[in-house]
Write a protein that binds this DNA or RNA. Sequence first.
DNA 1: CGCACCCCCTGCCGGC
DNA 2: TGCCGGCAGGGGGTGC
Length: 270
Amino acid sequence: MPELPEIETIVRGLAPHLVGRAVCTVRVREPRLRERIAPDFARALVGREIHSLARAGKTVVAGLDDGLRWLVHLGMTGRLTLQGADVAPRPHDHVEIGLDDGRCLVYNDVRRFGRLVVVAPDAVAAEVGLGLEPLGEDARPDVLAARARRRRLSVKAFLMDQRLLVGIGNIYASEILFHAGLRPWRRAGRLSLAEWQRVVAATRHVLEDAIACGGSTISDYRDGFEGFGSYQLRHAVYGRAGEPCVRCATRLRSRVIVGRSSFYCPTCQR
DNA sequence: CGCACCCCCTGCCGGC
DNA sequence: TGCCGGCAGGGGGTGC
């Protein structure tokens, strides 16, 4: 689910409400996530003030007043939402963080593929993925071309590899490659610089548009206040196999690439 | 190195 | 109606 635009939406929404707040209580109802929540997780958060809230790749990063970082990765179905005081727990509400204004930050996750951990600041990069931020200054066509040199992986696998770029997942990889006019299985190492320029332009365009729309709600995703995203209404190809291409009316197709469904227009993408 | 194939977990949908 | 297989935005490990 939550890729860069969804995490960015959550962080932008929650930051004004969380920064400056102190954590009063932590209740872990279900520690068995993809990685079990550490026994000292609650102790690491209680009494801490949240100094900052930011996104790194697909991870929410909260800076604490003792210098440590609280990382939240939402996996496929995670939700991080701010609730009023004393709301009844709902199914899959696994962690509740009580704040000093009486409100409660709730981590809900049907499939429990998420991850909650407190780490030292110098460990954040390795936890998040060492790739470039796709909206950052460093994500330039020549830099990506250099990273792809002599590599045989597909351009879609390249976009989704968090060691190369952080934040792009299965939905946005398909959308980006449609806007770049490239078939998803093209070998990354064989793209021209002009094609990398299209990839970078499409990446910025798609991610910024998606952020402006509050992300994509396919089924589970909600923002920090349980709101829906609307970028799914702008998806050109994702989930649209069999439908006509918005640009040329050719029937869109899907194909599995490195284990994930990919959607593309056989006419617009070459 | 790149990928196929496992795992983690729950829910939903379509076919029979 | 009910069961079963397949699939779903995440990532990690193994082995060819």
